[in-house]
């Protein structure tokens, strides 16, 4: 059984603290080159290796990450 997942980031709330990046086991989050309206470089999905483990969302202090997961 394998999982395929993805995340959705509320970029206007994201403060770019990068705690999610270090907690992602598959290294699929990065900071965007662009900034949001507050001037923070927000987190974004870097590749499609996300398995929907929700580690990033759990450690996110601002609760900006929504995690989706399906069995494949």
């Amino acid at each position: 059984m394998a999982f395929k997942g993805t995340i959705e980031i509320d970029i206007q709330r994201c403060k770019g603290c990068s705690v999610c990046i270090g907690n992602c086991p598959n290294k699929c989050i990065r900071l965007a080159k662009a900034v949001n309206s507050k001037g923070y470089r927000y987190a974004e999905l870097a590749n499609d290796s996300c398995v929907g483990c929700a580690s990033c969302a759990m450690v996110c202090p601002d609760s900006v990450i929504t995690v989706y997961r399906v069995k494949i």
């Binding site: 997942g5 959705e8 499609d48 969302a57 609760s63 900006v64 995690v67």
Partner: peptide, 17 residues
Amino acid sequence: DIISDIKKPENMVYGRP
């Protein structure tokens, strides 16, 4: 396309309380 397929309310496993 796969990613937008996954992003459905029934597949949500974790979100803002």
